[in-house]
């Protein structure tokens, strides 16, 4: 009974409408929090796990030594590696594929890597134009690494003190 009377009063005094208008009015003058993606971007944690990359040493030599620990640790079986002895006698991959459809971005590969070769970058906005595009090859991974070496180095440095 009391509830019905309360509702009647609210309806006839336009209480809800005024409440709504009040929020509109305050937000009209408040500071804006939306960003204009893709022109603007929100900050990303150095621990963010995005697209993978293979890194190189400063002298241009690829870091990966085909130990296959990332392949072994990957819970989604997303990584496929084939290896051989390169002509100079070092152990190298001939194939390093990551299937991004399988990948769950857990970051175990990065944790397992003894030479910091495979890393997950902060890149998250990528797309494939074909189904097979989800398998990212060694060449592409190295390319991503080469292109983003500076930022990878930066984020790893930032995170290093917490590890």
């Amino acid at each position: 009974m009391i509830d019905n009377i309360k509702k009647l009063v609210k309806d006839f005094t336009l209480g809800e409408l005024r409440g709504g208008m009040k929020i509109t009015a305050t937000e009209l003058v408040n500071k804006k929090i939306t960003v204009q993606y893709p022109e603007e971007k929100t900050p990303i944690s150095p621990r963010f796990r995005g697209l993978h990359a293979l890194r190189r040493y400063p002298n241009g030599e690829e870091r990966c030594i085909a130990c296959k620990l990332c392949e072994a640790t990957c819970p989604a079986n997303a990584i496929t590696i084939e290896s051989e002895m390169r002509d100079d006698g070092t152990r190298r991959t001939t194939k390093y594929d990551i299937d991004l459809f399988k990948c769950i971005f857990c970051g175990f590969c990065e944790e397992a890597c003894p030479v910091d070769a495979i890393v997950e970058t902060q890149i998250f906005d990528y797309a494939f134009s074909s189904r097979s595009g989800s398998v990212i090859t060694k060449e592409r991974l190295l390319e991503v690494g080469d292109k983003n070496e500076k930022s990878i180095n930066q984020t790893k440095l930032e995170d290093a003190k917490y590890r």
Binding site: K68, E84, M85, R92
Partner: peptide, 9 residues
């Protein structure tokens, strides 16, 4: 067999 595979594979 050098550098080809890991035993677990």
């Amino acid at each position: 067999f050098r550098y080809e595979l890991r035993s677990w594979q």
